[in-house]
Amino acid sequence: MACLNETKIQDYIEGGLTAVERSLVRDHLIVCAKCNASYQRYEKLEKSLGEPVYITPPLIIERNVLRMLFPRIPSYSSIFALLAASFLLLVTSIYIYFDFANNSIVQAFQLTSHDTSNWLGSIIKAISTIFSTVYVIFKAINAFFEVIFKVNMGVEIIGLCMLLLLSWSFYLLSRLVFKKIKGSN
């Protein structure tokens, strides 16, 4: 039998020959060193290909696909926290906007509390005290910036920055609290 061509050897490995052909090839492989060497190499190649080296897909694929297909609806805790933080920001922004420097709202609060008795008067007094304290803190921060960096930012700007920071912290805190409450239920 003449030497085997590459296709014949591959067909033999894959079991694609008839019984007679297989037996002829087998006999030839015993006597022909050259064809046998070629056969051995194809065997090794087939074995290597049969055990693929997989490449790990990055996790981002699954995450992105799921996010695009099923966008997450914000949880109740996030919505509540956002509402609470927005309320805080809104109330204090209004306070800053309405003549924060002159403390007119604080004064108005204090005047109102004089005519109001019991718990309502106490609440108004407490609020005006908080506002006055916050105002003093803002003034102190502004003075600090002026001394250290020689920049007068203004109490209103400092106030706004602090409020944004505060609101954000409040948002995160509220989310945590709401989550805990939800978890304990």
Binding site: P52, Y54, I55, T56, P57, I61, E62, V65, L66
Partner: peptide
């Protein structure tokens, strides 16, 4: 998600 996990490796590969 399960179907994706099952075929992700082969498809990405």
């Amino acid at each position: 998600e399960e179907l994706m996990k099952k075929h992700n490796k082969r498809i990405f590969g």
